[in-house]
Amino acid sequence: MRPSHLALAVLVAAVWGVNFTVIEVGLDHFPPLLFSALRFLAAALPAVFFVGRPKVAWKWIVAVGLVLGVAKFGLVFVGMDAGMPAGLSSLVLQIQAVFTAVIAWAALGERPSAVGTVGMLVALAGIGVAAVDEGTSGPLGAFALVVAAAAAWGVSNVLTRKASPPDALNFMVWVSTVPVLPLVGLSLLTEGASRDLAALGALDWQGAGTVLFVAWVSTVFGFGAWGWLLKRHPASRVAPFSLLVPVFGMSSAALFLGEPVTPLRWCAAALLVGGVALTSITPRNRDRSRVRAEGGAPAPAEVGRRTPVPAEEFGR
Rank of each mutant, 00 (worst) to 15 (best):
V102I: 15
A37Y: 07
A42V: 15
Q206S: 14
F30A: 03
S164E: 13
F223D: 13
A13I: 08
A142F: 00
L189V: 14
L6C: 11
W174K: 10
W205L: 15
P166Q: 05
G296M: 15
D204K: 09
P234D: 08
H5K: 08
G185I: 15
G185C: 09
L212R: 08
L271A: 11
V180C: 02
R316L: 07
M172W: 03
P300K: 02
Q206M: 14
R111A: 14
V273K: 02
A269D: 01
P263W: 13
L264Q: 12
S156W: 01
A144R: 00
R195Y: 00
G87V: 08
V22A: 11
L188F: 07
E110N: 08
L91A: 05
V303N: 00
A301R: 15
V129S: 05
N19F: 13
T210K: 12
T136G: 12
V184I: 15
M120S: 03
A268C: 00
T262I: 01
K162G: 05
A299T: 03
V70Q: 02
P112Y: 07
A142V: 04
L181F: 05
T100K: 01
A42M: 14
L230E: 06
A106C: 13
P54M: 08
A114C: 05
Q96I: 00
T21C: 15
L91P: 02
G83L: 04
P182R: 03
Q94M: 00
A14E: 01
L38Y: 12
R286I: 09
T190E: 02
A151R: 12
A199S: 15
L188C: 00
V129A: 02
V76F: 03
L255N: 14
I61A: 09
V78L: 06
A225M: 07
A297I: 10
G65V: 07
G274D: 02
R316W: 11
A144K: 04
T177N: 07
R237M: 11
A193D: 06
L8G: 03
I281F: 10
F49S: 11
A168K: 05
A47P: 06
L271G: 03
P260I: 00
T117E: 07
A131C: 02
W105D: 10
G209M: 01
L264A: 12
A42D: 09
F20T: 12
F314N: 04
A202T: 12
G315W: 03
F314V: 01
L181R: 06
D28V: 06
T282A: 07
G201V: 11
A9N: 04
L145D: 01
V118L: 11
L203R: 10
P234G: 10
